[in-house]
C-alpha cells in the first residue's frame, strides 16, 4: 500500500509538472552555461578579462547605467581588475564630481578622487527614464547577482553540488548576444527591441554593442561575443568583489574542518570503545 501511494504521488507530480513548465517557459532558449574563470571551488577572476570588461563597461554600459556601489578605489583593490593606484586615480580624475557646499554655500565640481563612487549618468531616476524612452536602466552594481537563468527541478538540486553560481553572468552574456530579428508574426511594441533571452522578449534597451566598437589592445578579438563575456565577468566582480578571497578561505576552512572531523571521529571511537551502544 505504501508503494502504491508513493508511486502514485510521484507519477502525479511528474505529470503535473511537465505541461505547466512547458506553458510557463514556452520554447524559450535557456541561456547557455558558459565556462567562467571564477566558477568552481578554485575559481578566480581573470585580471586581464576584468580590465577589458571595465573598458566595455566604461565606454558602453556606463553611458546609461549607474553603478552606485562601485568606488574608484575598488579598481585598485586586490581580487579585482588590479589597476595600479595611479591608474585608478587617473580614471577618477577623468570624471567631475559634484561636491560641496563650499564656504559660500554653493555646490561645486571637482575632479574625482579614489573615495568617490562611480558617477551616475543621470541625476535621478526620472531623468534617466526621460532620456531612455520611459524605461529605467537598472543600476549595475549587483546586477550579476540580481539575475538568474531559471532552473527547475531537478536542476536546482544538482546545482547545490556543482556549486553553480553563475546564472546571473550566463544570463547577461546571453542577453547581450541575444538580439536577433523578431520571428515572423511576433508583435513587437514600438520602441521595444526583440531579444531571444529577455523574459517576454521585448526589451527597452536597444542592442548596446557591435563588433569592433570597443578597442582591445591585447589582441583579444573585438567581437560582440567577447565583449559580452568580458563585461559579464566584470559585472560579476562588481557584484561579488571578494569572490577570490571567499574561495581561497573556503578551501582552507574545508581542509581544516576535514582534519578536525577526522580527529574527532577517532577520539569518539576511542571514548566509546568499551561501551556497547
Amino acid at each position: 500500500m505504501k508503494k502504491t501511494i508513493l508511486f502514485g504521488a510521484a507519477a502525479l507530480a511528474l505529470l503535473l509538472a511537465s505541461p505547466v513548465k512547458a506553458a510557463e517557459g514556452g520554447h524559450d532558449d535557456l541561456p547557455h552555461r558558459e565556462s567562467w574563470s571564477f566558477a568552481g571551488p578554485f575559481g578566480t577572476y581573470d585580471t586581464a578579462q576584468l580590465q577589458r570588461g571595465f573598458k566595455v563597461f566604461r565606454e558602453v554600459c556606463a553611458a546609461c547605467h549607474s553603478a552606485n556601489y562601485l568606488y574608484f578605489r575598488n579598481l585598485a583593490q586586490p581580487g579585482g581588475p588590479r589597476f595600479s593606484e595611479a591608474q585608478a586615480k587617473a580614471v577618477a580624475t577623468d570624471y567631475q564630481i559634484t561636491d560641496g557646499p563650499n564656504d559660500q554655500g554653493e555646490m561645486f565640481q571637482r575632479p574625482g578622487r579614489l573615495s568617490d563612487h562611480w558617477p551616475a549618468p543621470f541625476p535621478n531616476d526620472q531623468a534617466a527614464r526621460v532620456a531612455n524612452g520611459g524605461a529605467l536602466p537598472p543600476d549595475l552594481s549587483v546586477i550579476a547577482k540580481a539575475r538568474a537563468s531559471h532552473v527547475g527541478f531537478p536542476g536546482f538540486i544538482t546545482d547545490a553540488f556543482t556549486q553553480y553560481q553563475e546564472g546571473g553572468v550566463d544570463y547577461i552574456h546571453a542577453l547581450l548576444t541575444g538580439y536577433v530579428d523578431a520571428p515572423e508574426g511576433f508583435k513587437l511594441q514600438s520602441g521595444l527591441n526583440y531579444n531571444k533571452y529577455f523574459p517576454g522578449h521585448q526589451i527597452a534597451m536597444p542592442k548596446p554593442i557591435s563588433d569592433g566598437q570597443v578597442e582591445y589592445t591585447d589582441g583579444t578579438p573585438a567581437t560582440v561575443d567577447q565583449y559580452s563575456r568580458d563585461v559579464s565577468a566584470y559585472l560579476m566582480w562588481m557584484a561579488e568583489p571578494h569572490l577570490d578571497a571567499r574561495k581561497r578561505i573556503g578551501f582552507q576552512v574545508f581542509v581544516f574542518l576535514i582534519v578536525l572531523a577526522g580527529l574527532l571521529y577517532f577520539t569518539k571511537k576511542k571514548i566509546w570503545k568499551n561501551v556497547a551502544h
Partner: peptide, 12 residues
C-alpha cells in the same frame, strides 16, 4: 589523540 584533537580545535 586527545591533545591533537584539542589543539586543532583550539586553532579552529
Amino acid at each position: 589523540l586527545y591533545i591533537a584533537t584539542g589543539a586543532v580545535g583550539a586553532v579552529g
